[in-house]
Design a protein around this nucleic acid. Structure first.
Lengths: 124, 124
DNA sequence: TTACACTTTAGAGTGCACTCTAAAGCAATG
DNA sequence: CATTGCTTTAGAGTGCACTCTAAAGTGTAA
Protein backbone atom coordinates (compact mmCIF):
# COMPACT_ATOMS: atom_id res chain seq x y z
CA UNK A 1 0.00 0.00 0.00
CA UNK A 2 1.83 3.09 -1.31
CA UNK A 3 1.36 6.44 0.48
CA UNK A 4 -0.04 8.44 -2.48
CA UNK A 5 0.15 12.08 -1.48
CA UNK A 6 -1.00 15.10 -3.46
CA UNK A 7 -0.01 18.78 -3.57
CA UNK A 8 -2.45 21.58 -2.88
CA UNK A 9 -2.52 22.36 -6.60
CA UNK A 10 -3.49 18.79 -7.49
CA UNK A 11 -6.24 18.81 -4.87
CA UNK A 12 -7.45 22.10 -6.24
CA UNK A 13 -7.83 20.51 -9.68
CA UNK A 14 -9.50 17.40 -8.29
CA UNK A 15 -12.03 19.20 -6.12
CA UNK A 16 -12.60 22.52 -7.88
CA UNK A 17 -11.70 24.41 -4.71
CA UNK A 18 -8.90 26.98 -5.11
CA UNK A 19 -5.65 26.56 -3.14
CA UNK A 20 -6.76 29.67 -1.24
CA UNK A 21 -10.00 28.04 -0.23
CA UNK A 22 -8.28 24.80 0.80
CA UNK A 23 -6.02 26.78 3.17
CA UNK A 24 -9.02 28.75 4.40
CA UNK A 25 -10.94 25.53 5.16
CA UNK A 26 -7.95 24.31 7.12
CA UNK A 27 -7.67 27.61 8.99
CA UNK A 28 -11.28 27.48 10.15
CA UNK A 29 -11.00 23.79 11.04
CA UNK A 30 -13.01 22.06 8.30
CA UNK A 31 -9.79 20.32 7.31
CA UNK A 32 -7.30 19.17 9.92
CA UNK A 33 -4.29 16.87 10.32
CA UNK A 34 -3.04 17.53 6.78
CA UNK A 35 0.43 16.03 6.44
CA UNK A 36 3.43 18.31 5.65
CA UNK A 37 6.66 17.50 3.78
CA UNK A 38 10.12 18.64 4.93
CA UNK A 39 9.54 22.11 3.45
CA UNK A 40 6.24 22.57 5.22
CA UNK A 41 4.26 22.00 2.01
CA UNK A 42 0.89 20.32 2.46
CA UNK A 43 0.56 16.68 1.34
CA UNK A 44 -3.05 15.54 1.02
CA UNK A 45 -3.98 11.87 1.36
CA UNK A 46 -6.74 9.86 -0.31
CA UNK A 47 -8.74 10.08 2.89
CA UNK A 48 -8.36 13.90 2.91
CA UNK A 49 -9.78 13.89 -0.62
CA UNK A 50 -12.82 11.83 0.43
CA UNK A 51 -13.43 14.17 3.31
CA UNK A 52 -13.22 17.24 1.05
CA UNK A 53 -15.72 15.65 -1.34
CA UNK A 54 -18.04 14.97 1.55
CA UNK A 55 -17.73 18.60 2.73
CA UNK A 56 -18.55 19.76 -0.80
CA UNK A 57 -21.68 17.63 -0.77
CA UNK A 58 -22.76 19.30 2.45
CA UNK A 59 -21.96 22.72 1.02
CA UNK A 60 -23.90 22.30 -2.25
CA UNK A 61 -26.88 21.10 -0.28
CA UNK A 62 -26.85 24.38 1.60
CA UNK A 63 -25.18 23.50 4.90
CA UNK A 64 -23.62 26.52 6.60
CA UNK A 65 -19.87 26.52 7.19
CA UNK A 66 -20.48 26.76 10.94
CA UNK A 67 -22.52 23.53 10.82
CA UNK A 68 -19.87 21.83 8.70
CA UNK A 69 -17.41 22.94 11.37
CA UNK A 70 -19.48 21.30 14.08
CA UNK A 71 -19.56 18.10 12.04
CA UNK A 72 -15.82 18.30 11.42
CA UNK A 73 -15.15 18.78 15.13
CA UNK A 74 -17.14 15.64 15.97
CA UNK A 75 -15.28 13.69 13.30
CA UNK A 76 -11.95 14.78 14.73
CA UNK A 77 -12.95 13.22 18.06
CA UNK A 78 -13.25 9.76 16.55
CA UNK A 79 -15.62 6.81 16.66
CA UNK A 80 -17.37 7.86 19.85
CA UNK A 81 -19.11 10.68 17.98
CA UNK A 82 -20.71 8.53 15.27
CA UNK A 83 -24.24 8.85 16.60
CA UNK A 84 -23.83 12.60 17.07
CA UNK A 85 -22.74 12.84 13.47
CA UNK A 86 -25.66 10.72 12.33
CA UNK A 87 -28.07 13.01 14.15
CA UNK A 88 -26.57 16.14 12.57
CA UNK A 89 -26.79 14.49 9.20
CA UNK A 90 -30.40 13.43 9.73
CA UNK A 91 -31.31 17.02 10.53
CA UNK A 92 -29.59 18.09 7.37
CA UNK A 93 -31.36 15.33 5.43
CA UNK A 94 -34.70 16.79 6.49
CA UNK A 95 -33.54 20.27 5.45
CA UNK A 96 -32.52 19.06 2.00
CA UNK A 97 -35.82 17.26 1.53
CA UNK A 98 -37.67 20.44 2.51
CA UNK A 99 -35.55 22.44 0.08
CA UNK A 100 -36.37 20.05 -2.76
CA UNK A 101 -40.08 20.31 -2.03
CA UNK A 102 -39.99 24.08 -1.88
CA UNK A 103 -38.12 24.23 -5.17
CA UNK A 104 -40.65 21.87 -6.77
CA UNK A 105 -43.55 24.04 -5.64
CA UNK A 106 -41.94 27.18 -6.92
CA UNK A 107 -40.98 25.50 -10.16
CA UNK A 108 -44.65 24.75 -10.72
CA UNK A 109 -45.46 28.46 -10.38
CA UNK A 110 -42.66 29.36 -12.78
CA UNK A 111 -44.01 26.82 -15.30
CA UNK A 112 -47.43 28.41 -15.05
CA UNK A 113 -46.04 31.92 -15.49
CA UNK A 114 -44.22 30.80 -18.63
CA UNK A 115 -47.50 29.39 -19.97
CA UNK A 116 -49.19 32.72 -19.25
CA UNK A 117 -46.50 34.55 -21.18
CA UNK A 118 -46.89 32.14 -24.12
CA UNK A 119 -50.62 32.78 -24.15
CA UNK A 120 -50.02 36.55 -24.08
CA UNK A 121 -47.58 36.24 -26.96
CA UNK A 122 -50.27 34.43 -28.95
CA UNK A 123 -52.66 37.36 -28.45
CA UNK A 124 -50.76 39.81 -30.71
CA UNK B 1 -63.58 48.78 -7.13
CA UNK B 2 -62.03 50.38 -4.05
CA UNK B 3 -58.35 51.45 -4.14
CA UNK B 4 -57.08 49.23 -1.28
CA UNK B 5 -53.67 50.56 -0.34
CA UNK B 6 -51.29 49.23 2.30
CA UNK B 7 -48.53 50.73 4.46
CA UNK B 8 -44.98 49.50 4.39
CA UNK B 9 -45.52 47.82 7.76
CA UNK B 10 -48.55 45.90 6.50
CA UNK B 11 -46.62 44.78 3.44
CA UNK B 12 -43.77 43.71 5.68
CA UNK B 13 -46.16 41.48 7.63
CA UNK B 14 -47.75 40.08 4.48
CA UNK B 15 -44.52 39.25 2.69
CA UNK B 16 -42.04 38.57 5.48
CA UNK B 17 -39.67 41.21 4.08
CA UNK B 18 -38.66 43.93 6.54
CA UNK B 19 -39.56 47.57 5.84
CA UNK B 20 -35.83 48.12 5.37
CA UNK B 21 -35.67 45.45 2.69
CA UNK B 22 -38.75 46.81 0.92
CA UNK B 23 -37.10 50.24 0.68
CA UNK B 24 -33.86 48.60 -0.41
CA UNK B 25 -35.65 46.67 -3.18
CA UNK B 26 -37.14 49.94 -4.36
CA UNK B 27 -33.77 51.70 -4.25
CA UNK B 28 -32.14 49.08 -6.47
CA UNK B 29 -35.12 49.02 -8.83
CA UNK B 30 -36.79 45.69 -8.08
CA UNK B 31 -39.84 47.66 -7.00
CA UNK B 32 -40.89 50.83 -8.83
CA UNK B 33 -43.84 53.16 -9.23
CA UNK B 34 -44.95 52.72 -5.62
CA UNK B 35 -47.67 55.27 -4.85
CA UNK B 36 -47.11 57.92 -2.14
CA UNK B 37 -49.64 59.69 0.10
CA UNK B 38 -49.54 63.44 0.87
CA UNK B 39 -46.83 62.89 3.51
CA UNK B 40 -44.61 60.94 1.14
CA UNK B 41 -45.47 57.64 2.85
CA UNK B 42 -45.51 54.63 0.54
CA UNK B 43 -48.89 53.12 -0.36
CA UNK B 44 -48.63 49.64 -1.84
CA UNK B 45 -51.33 48.28 -4.15
CA UNK B 46 -52.60 44.72 -4.65
CA UNK B 47 -50.56 44.52 -7.82
CA UNK B 48 -47.43 45.60 -5.94
CA UNK B 49 -48.07 42.73 -3.54
CA UNK B 50 -48.36 40.20 -6.38
CA UNK B 51 -45.12 41.47 -7.85
CA UNK B 52 -43.35 41.18 -4.49
CA UNK B 53 -44.57 37.60 -4.12
CA UNK B 54 -43.29 36.82 -7.59
CA UNK B 55 -39.89 38.35 -6.73
CA UNK B 56 -39.77 36.21 -3.60
CA UNK B 57 -40.41 33.11 -5.66
CA UNK B 58 -37.48 34.00 -7.89
CA UNK B 59 -35.33 34.68 -4.84
CA UNK B 60 -36.05 31.42 -3.01
CA UNK B 61 -35.31 29.52 -6.21
CA UNK B 62 -31.85 31.06 -6.18
CA UNK B 63 -32.12 33.87 -8.71
CA UNK B 64 -29.54 36.60 -8.17
CA UNK B 65 -30.75 40.12 -7.39
CA UNK B 66 -29.03 41.37 -10.55
CA UNK B 67 -31.09 38.95 -12.65
CA UNK B 68 -34.26 39.91 -10.83
CA UNK B 69 -33.33 43.51 -11.67
CA UNK B 70 -33.05 42.64 -15.35
CA UNK B 71 -36.46 41.01 -15.20
CA UNK B 72 -37.92 43.99 -13.35
CA UNK B 73 -36.49 46.40 -15.92
CA UNK B 74 -38.16 44.46 -18.75
CA UNK B 75 -41.45 44.44 -16.86
CA UNK B 76 -41.27 48.21 -16.40
CA UNK B 77 -41.12 48.61 -20.18
CA UNK B 78 -44.51 46.98 -20.67
CA UNK B 79 -46.12 44.40 -22.94
CA UNK B 80 -43.46 44.59 -25.65
CA UNK B 81 -41.03 42.75 -23.37
CA UNK B 82 -43.20 39.69 -22.71
CA UNK B 83 -41.14 37.31 -24.85
CA UNK B 84 -37.90 38.62 -23.35
CA UNK B 85 -39.33 37.94 -19.92
CA UNK B 86 -40.45 34.47 -20.97
CA UNK B 87 -36.94 33.68 -22.19
CA UNK B 88 -35.35 34.84 -18.94
CA UNK B 89 -37.84 32.76 -17.02
CA UNK B 90 -37.20 29.67 -19.17
CA UNK B 91 -33.49 29.96 -18.45
CA UNK B 92 -34.29 30.18 -14.78
CA UNK B 93 -36.67 27.22 -15.08
CA UNK B 94 -33.79 25.10 -16.40
CA UNK B 95 -31.58 26.29 -13.54
CA UNK B 96 -34.16 25.34 -10.95
CA UNK B 97 -34.63 21.91 -12.51
CA UNK B 98 -30.87 21.38 -12.46
CA UNK B 99 -30.78 22.47 -8.81
CA UNK B 100 -33.48 19.97 -7.89
CA UNK B 101 -31.61 17.16 -9.63
CA UNK B 102 -28.33 18.03 -7.95
CA UNK B 103 -30.03 18.15 -4.56
CA UNK B 104 -31.66 14.75 -5.20
CA UNK B 105 -28.32 13.18 -6.10
CA UNK B 106 -26.65 14.59 -3.04
CA UNK B 107 -29.55 13.57 -0.86
CA UNK B 108 -29.01 10.00 -1.98
CA UNK B 109 -25.39 10.18 -0.81
CA UNK B 110 -26.48 11.65 2.52
CA UNK B 111 -29.00 8.82 2.94
CA UNK B 112 -26.26 6.29 2.32
CA UNK B 113 -23.91 7.97 4.78
CA UNK B 114 -26.61 7.85 7.44
CA UNK B 115 -27.06 4.14 6.77
CA UNK B 116 -23.31 3.62 7.17
CA UNK B 117 -23.38 5.42 10.50
CA UNK B 118 -26.30 3.26 11.65
CA UNK B 119 -24.37 0.14 10.70
CA UNK B 120 -21.30 1.39 12.60
CA UNK B 121 -23.45 2.10 15.65
CA UNK B 122 -24.71 -1.49 15.50
CA UNK B 123 -21.12 -2.78 15.68
CA UNK B 124 -20.54 -1.72 19.30
C1' DT C 1 -49.35 68.80 24.79
C1' DT C 2 -46.61 65.37 25.51
C1' DA C 3 -45.63 60.77 24.60
C1' DC C 4 -45.27 57.13 21.48
C1' DA C 5 -45.27 54.95 17.23
C1' DC C 6 -45.06 55.45 12.74
C1' DT C 7 -42.82 57.31 8.35
C1' DT C 8 -38.84 59.35 5.33
C1' DT C 9 -33.68 59.66 3.51
C1' DA C 10 -28.61 58.88 2.57
C1' DG C 11 -25.28 56.36 3.76
C1' DA C 12 -22.75 53.31 6.96
C1' DG C 13 -22.41 48.69 8.92
C1' DT C 14 -22.97 43.47 9.03
C1' DG C 15 -22.23 38.49 8.17
C1' DC C 16 -21.06 35.10 5.19
C1' DA C 17 -17.87 32.73 2.42
C1' DC C 18 -14.50 33.32 0.25
C1' DT C 19 -10.45 35.73 -2.38
C1' DC C 20 -6.44 38.10 -2.65
C1' DT C 21 -1.89 40.43 -1.29
C1' DA C 22 2.74 40.75 0.21
C1' DA C 23 6.82 38.92 1.51
C1' DA C 24 9.34 35.12 1.81
C1' DG C 25 11.31 30.23 0.94
C1' DC C 26 12.12 26.07 -2.13
C1' DA C 27 13.06 23.40 -6.63
C1' DA C 28 13.61 22.33 -11.42
C1' DT C 29 15.13 24.33 -16.07
C1' DG C 30 18.20 26.71 -19.41
C1' DC D 1 23.22 31.06 -11.15
C1' DA D 2 19.18 33.42 -12.60
C1' DT D 3 14.51 32.71 -13.88
C1' DT D 4 10.10 30.70 -13.39
C1' DG D 5 6.79 28.70 -10.77
C1' DC D 6 5.60 26.48 -6.97
C1' DT D 7 4.84 26.77 -1.77
C1' DT D 8 4.06 29.20 3.01
C1' DT D 9 1.81 32.86 6.39
C1' DA D 10 -1.11 36.68 8.51
C1' DG D 11 -4.13 39.62 7.52
C1' DA D 12 -6.64 42.74 4.34
C1' DG D 13 -10.11 43.05 0.72
C1' DT D 14 -14.36 41.61 -2.01
C1' DG D 15 -19.22 40.86 -3.37
C1' DC D 16 -23.58 39.79 -2.11
C1' DA D 17 -27.81 40.80 0.10
C1' DC D 18 -29.31 42.83 3.26
C1' DT D 19 -29.65 45.56 7.90
C1' DC D 20 -29.18 49.37 10.60
C1' DT D 21 -28.41 54.38 12.10
C1' DA D 22 -29.38 59.15 12.61
C1' DA D 23 -32.04 62.91 12.05
C1' DA D 24 -36.17 64.61 10.88
C1' DG D 25 -41.30 64.80 9.95
C1' DT D 26 -46.38 63.00 10.78
C1' DG D 27 -50.51 60.92 13.37
C1' DT D 28 -53.14 59.25 17.37
C1' DA D 29 -54.23 58.60 22.20
C1' DA D 30 -54.38 60.29 27.15
Amino acid sequence: MEPNFFTIQQISEMTGLTAHTLRYYEKIGLLYGIHRDTNGYRQYSESDISWIHFLLRLRVTGMKVSDMKQFSDLRSQGEATISGRRELLETHQRNVLAQINELKNNLKMIDEKIETYKWMEGQD
